[in-house]
């Protein structure tokens, strides 16, 4: 058994800001995630303590560009895909 329980799923869904919607769904996700995490435990059998993690496929260095001003997006464009705007701003429900 892995450590995935419905409580873990609900906690993680809360962190990800996704409503689980129903107890039934929570249980479904629990079962599926449990199977995947359980399978991934196979990595535990490998001796990896001396190995460096590889976060990226390429050796990358910072690439700098000239700090030159260019034409930005217009306000209209930036707001054009939003469902709710007012006075040139994104409009959201109250925060508190």
């Amino acid at each position: 058994m892995s450590e995935i329980t419905t409580d873990v799923v609900k906690h993680v869904a809360n962190l990800a800001r996704i409503d689980v919607q129903s107890e039934e769904k929570a249980e479904e996700f629990t079962k599926e995630l449990d199977a995947i995490v359980d399978y991934a435990k196979q990595l535990d059998e490998l001796p990896l303590s001396e190995t460096e993690p590889m976060f990226h496929a390429l050796d990358l260095t910072n690439v700098m560009r000239e700090d030159e001003a260019s034409e930005p997006l217009s306000q209209d464009e930036a707001l054009s895909n939003s469902k709710s705007t007012e006075d040139g701003q994104f409009k959201v429900p109250k925060m508190l």
């Binding site: 993680v12 962190l15 990800a16 800001r17 996704i18 409503d19 599926e32 995630l33 995490v37």
Partner: peptide, 19 residues
Amino acid sequence: TRAEGFGEEVKRRILLGTF
């Protein structure tokens, strides 16, 4: 928004990744 906008497979992977 995220519960209604994303399908099940996408949610599953977001939950896995968040875990």
